[in-house]
Simulated assay, not measured.
Amino acid sequence: MNVMVFDIETVPDVASGRRLYDLGELSDADTAQAMFQLRMAKTGGDFLPHHLQRIVAISIVFRSRESVRVWSLGEETADEAELITRFFDGVGRYTPTLVSWNGSGFDLPVLHYRALLHGIAAPRYWEIGDDDREFRYSNYISRFHWRHIDLMDVLAGYQPRASAPLDEVATMLGLPGKMGMSGARVWDAFQGGDLSGIRNYCETDVLNTYLVYLRFEHLRGHLDATGYADEQARLRALLGEAEAPHLREFIDAWNAHGA
């Protein structure tokens, strides 16, 4: 079975903000600030709605029968449409189990709106059993099916009041947790041209998610103790051979915590 753990990073969609709020020729920074202020006035918080989030990074841990890999989709120069196309092409090609942390509440709705904006078709992802009967009782869209496992949602028993942040759960389990950045700092990093830093941060987040997923698979009996240890060892071997500094830092932190 193919497993595709994913995470996205976003910034304000200033182009849509200008159109929606008639902001004229304001700079990107001023447009975003206006969007935050308008959101604050409406809701009391400045977190922008899903349809006004522009995707700048999508990172993946992919576990196939043969191997495990971690990477960010596309080149740093790739535009949003290319990133989203690559994501849904992967779903169409491999029909993986998707795994996320708060993917149902954030990542997937953002991907839906942005795919709609760019006109990106994803028939395999949207299949609910009309053309493939196997998807009737297990598809990516239904909250309670298993083709997409939102770990935050599942572990909270589908109760929003019981939800927990990935960083806290990862740290509780002895995993590295957040490293080098946070979602709140992505916009500043993007304005400073640090796409590499954003992608690196996204990759460490998706590694945390994958390791929580392995613990969950052990929890529900899909991995016995030996299988769980083997999967951890497989990932340690991958990261141990990595040259990228952020991956080296991740495994060093993981080893230091002894999880």
Rank of each mutant, 00 (worst) to 15 (best):
L111A: 00
R147V: 04
Y113L: 11
R114T: 01
A115I: 01
H148V: 04
R133H: 15
A115V: 00
L111N: 00
R143W: 13
Y113M: 09
A115T: 00
H118I: 03
H118D: 02
Y113N: 10
Y137L: 12
I141C: 09
F144D: 11
A121G: 09
D132F: 14
I128E: 11
V154L: 13
E134D: 15
Y137C: 11
R147C: 06
R136T: 14
V110F: 03
F144H: 14
P109D: 07
S138W: 08
I141A: 10
G129D: 10
G157F: 08
R147Q: 12
L155F: 07
G119D: 02
W146G: 13
H145M: 12
Y158G: 03
A121C: 11
D150K: 01
A115C: 06
F144G: 10
S138D: 15
L108D: 01
L151E: 07
L108W: 06
D153N: 12
R114I: 02
I149D: 02
W146E: 14
R114G: 01
L111M: 09
A156I: 07
I128A: 11
R124S: 10
I149K: 10
L108V: 11
R147F: 07
L108Y: 06
P123Q: 03
Y113A: 09
G157N: 09
F135Q: 06
Y158W: 14
R133I: 15
W146S: 14
L155V: 04
W146Y: 14
I149S: 04
G129L: 09
N139L: 03
L117H: 13
L116K: 09
W126K: 05
Y158E: 09
H148Y: 07
S138E: 10
Y158T: 06
E127C: 05
G157E: 08
R136Q: 13
R147K: 15
D153L: 07
E127F: 02
L151C: 08
R143E: 13
W146F: 13
L111C: 01
L108E: 09
A121K: 12
R147N: 06
E134S: 15
G129V: 05
D130T: 13
G157M: 07
Y137K: 11
E127K: 03
G129H: 05
D131P: 03
D150C: 08
I120V: 11
A115G: 05
S138G: 11
W126M: 09
I128K: 11
F135A: 12
R133M: 14
D153H: 11
W146V: 11
A156V: 08
Y137E: 11
Y158I: 02
G157W: 08
S142E: 13
Y137P: 03
R124M: 12
E127D: 08
A122R: 04
V110T: 06
E127S: 03
Y125S: 00
I128N: 08
L155S: 04
L111R: 00
H118W: 08
W126S: 03
I149L: 15
W126H: 11
Y140H: 05
V154R: 14
L155A: 06
A122N: 07
A122V: 01
G157H: 05
A121S: 14
Y140C: 02
G129S: 07
A121V: 07
A115E: 00
H118M: 06
L117T: 09
A121M: 09
H118L: 06
Y113P: 01
L111E: 00
N139K: 03
W146H: 14
S138Y: 06
A122I: 01
S138K: 12
R143N: 10
R143A: 14
G157T: 05
D130E: 15
